[in-house]
Design a protein around this nucleic acid. Structure first.
Lengths: 150, 150
DNA sequence: CTACAAGTTCAAGTGAGCTTGAAGTCAAGG
DNA sequence: CCTTGACTTCAAGCTCACTTGAACTTGTAG
């Protein structure tokens, strides 16, 4: 398959495909002319990339996941599902954050206590202030020191 | 309150506060020296901004929400809770998308049907349509206009 | 053969949400 | 007086995930 066919079938722009290849997320061979030739399996990889992005993984993380696939043979369904473990937990984290926020909407904003220095949900000084500027503990930034997610 | 105190109490960097003011999200008066003087209520607005960001609203959208507050008097709890209606539904949308993705992980990747032109979950047309360039907002770009998805 | 569509590389641009740096102002302390 | 430090503005830089444009080569139809 040439790049425009892959683009058409995947819904991902050709420029994005070149970008992914540059980043090592997908591979291609070259025809004598220098044009890219993609194997059919690339569609599966691209699908994985798109899924994982929706879940919230960065391209770098996705690349790291894809490197866990066997290099010597076509990945099986089992290979793919092993990768999914990562993002299942990611999804759960996100959902619980959203549910915390949703709860905060009624208890915190609804009751009118929405104020950064008093509202328990929205950041007591006792926690966030210690962490200095930048990380907002209450927002779901992990307490210890992990750098922010996008 | 001067800018550094607001920054300290809110956990939002002074540079970000100036940026928000430039964007019209918050306001300040000026001391004779030209230094910003913030009223206490600004902390409430900032809390709202930070909450809304985590929910996935852009600063532009947040600005639009904030403009719905009464300009002539300090907003009441009721004023704030009216605004929250928007993002409550936003949160629900996002949660349900995540749950769809999570389900897709087992049914779609697990079963090996992961292929963009057949799997409804990956929804190529929707992506190809409008989500084009730019950042994919943290976890889920707000879909511009929804078509039902898997 | 000529057109022209489609491929190539590489560099620069985009947009959101800021941060950083340069250059300057102002108040307080020694 | 000088220094320090917090403030100001304005411009430029940063990250991420791409897109766009320039300049060029290949493939194919007529």
């Amino acid at each position: 398959m040439n790049i425009s066919e892959v683009a058409r079938r995947s819904g991902v722009a050709a420029s994005a495909l070149r970008f992914y290849e540059e980043r090592g997320l997908i591979q291609s061979e070259r025809a004598g002319s220098g044009h890219r030739r993609f194997p059919r399996e690339v569609l599966r990889r691209i699908a994985f990339i798109v899924f994982a992005q929706r879940v919230g993984l960065s391209l770098e993380e996705i690349g790291a996941e894809l490197k866990k696939l066997p290099p010597d043979r076509a990945p099986t369904g089992r290979d793919w599902s092993r990768l999914s473990a990562t993002w299942t937990s990611r999804i759960d984290e996100r959902i619980s954050e959203l549910e915390r926020l949703k709860a905060g909407l009624t208890t915190c904003i609804g009751c009118g206590c929405l104020s950064l220095d008093r509202c328990a949900l929205s950041n007591p000084n006792d926690r966030a202030a210690k962490l200095g500027p930048g990380p907002r503990y209450w927002m779901g930034d992990r307490p210890p020191k992990r750098a922010g997610q996008g």
